[in-house]
Design a protein around this nucleic acid. Structure first.
Lengths: 184, 184, 184, 184
DNA sequence: GATGAATGAGGATTCATTCAT
DNA sequence: GATGAATGAATCCTCATTCAT
């Protein structure tokens, strides 16, 4: 038995290609899209997809995890920024901005974000919390708000943005309300 | 030639049973649940379901429409209420309260609400707008907010509530923020 | 038990309407068309159709029989004609002419004509035979040809005409060949 | 990316088995027979049938194409024969001979032959035309006949043969007539 | 490890036929 | 007799998953 040999180079390459393809396919056609189509776009056999992700659900989870990882990184970068207030609100608006393009991710994220103890989700929530606390210390956000509220509000607005294909101006209007509610 | 006779008693009974079953099934298992299961729960043959709703999509649309109709009625009742401010915010909170139980409805609603020109959706939007205007006249809601913003916010928060199975207290926290944002 | 009471007036009227509708529907859409559509076109309930024709197959048989009856009558009329040669070849060409419009009938006829001992089929075959014999006596058709050959040839050419949607001139060309083959 | 590798051995084997089964089933029970029965007879899963022929119509088309291909080959072989007259009439009689066994093929052929620009149909028509021209040059077939007339006549007689389950001697009688019509 | 052929359960939909109204 | 609602077997087709090559 060869325990945990590091993945072969081509295998690692395939894994990435599959993940990219899956994100593209599921993002465009929803979670109902077929695994076969992912394989086709990735340029691998269907068998290879299932070797890497034994279940469709695993694959779905994996792209969410990857997405969250990127989100966590972006969010952490904002922490290095000088202006805590701008950082916090920019983060929120930026997320909503991206949301429209990523229906499926947002949907799945909603399912996962509440409970999941996955590593990347945690990292992301921590980053959000840090952003929030910093802004609160500055007096830019009211004190009686916690990370869960922010996350809930964020996902809510993202989902709404995703669903409706908002007419111009609507997004700004909604954010104005939410931001005023968040301010002191 | 048979002139538009009113629907036979048993047919009307079945129609209702199917609608009820469909709401139960799709609400619990999502829109992907099988039509056959709806038939089983309704206690009718699969053919009967398709006689009443020639397409699964028709069935889905029908339960959304029915839901919206109920919502519109509830909302209109609030218009008869004395206190415009309470009416508006009660409405909003009440919707979110109910949302958690109705995942699928909220999802489908999101798809429909933006564009649809269906009668019941319209009625509902009108009622919401009336509620809003009344509250604004009272000075309870800021002037630069329109029905679209309210609807978007409402659906967003509902969807978030639906997805996460919110821990206790979270819902209140989120609503406090949104409501403060909406106030003058 | 009331044996064979004559059919009620409305029942007889319905029977005819159903038969007409069935011919129209099956002729246009093929034998695969649904019985329900026949009922709709006839302006009666589906139950009424099945009361008159307990099986779809019965209905199909009935319209074939009716068609053949009309054919037999037409053919017999030609027998009253003065010119035996013209009568025979006119009959043949006329059948082929009509064929294109009646795909389904021709198809079903083909299945039935060979074996069936149904009354109307018999009548029709007898008329054809009479037409043939008369033409032979005149010396217009060769002697070594019998009714079965004529019928087979007739149905064959009809079916070919039905299937192909013949380009202009083709029908004449084919008939010229067949007729020359039939002549002395 | 997988470059057009030749079909795997087992896949090719199955494809043939499916085609054979389909020809058997559809020939016996008509085009309305179920795809599932084809799968059963072929000894493969229903999924395999649909993998090879994504649509029932594709499967039907495939067996027609295969049939026509065989016909084209047979017809071309006759072209290598010494005696043009015998070749032409043998071809015609042979086709009719085979027809009886292949109801469905002949039916579908009729639908296709007129218009289709499929490769194999074309090849077949060319071969027929060559046969015809050769026989005409010889003086064995009248000059005012073209390939379309021959094809129409051929399919017509085949269809008639198919439908009726001809009694002995009838086929010869019909062919005698047609052949005399075709001769100079 | 990679491949893609095979599998078969599952799902939407149709339609002949029955039977309560 | 007429009606049309109910029925459910049958059909086509999809897709996650397995496994021989």
């Amino acid at each position: 038995m060869t325990p945990d040999r590091p993945m072969r180079a081509d295998a690692r390459r395939n894994r990435v290609r599959i993940l990219d393809a899956a994100e593209a396919v599921f993002t465009e056609k929803g979670a109902g899209a077929s695994t076969e189509e992912v394989a086709r776009l990735a340029g691998v056999g269907i068998g290879t997809v299932f070797r890497h992700f034994p279940t469709k659900e695993d694959l779905l989870r994996a792209i969410v995890t990857a997405s969250v990882q990127r989100l966590a990184e972006q969010t952490q970068e904002l922490l290095a920024t000088g202006d805590p207030e701008a950082a916090f609100f920019t983060f929120f608006a930026g997320m909503v901005e991206q949301a429209a393009a990523k229906k499926t991710i947002v949907d799945l994220l909603g399912d996962a974000a509440g409970l999941s103890t996955d590593r990347p989700i945690h990292a992301w929530r921590d980053a959000i919390e840090a952003l929030l606390v910093r802004a609160q210390r500055e007096g830019a956000v009211r004190e009686d708000v916690g990370a869960p509220e922010v996350l809930a509000l964020l996902l809510g607005v993202c989902r709404a943005a995703v669903a409706a294909g908002w007419e111009p101006g609507l997004q700004e209007g909604v954010l104005r309300i939410v931001f005023d509610g968040l301010r002191t």
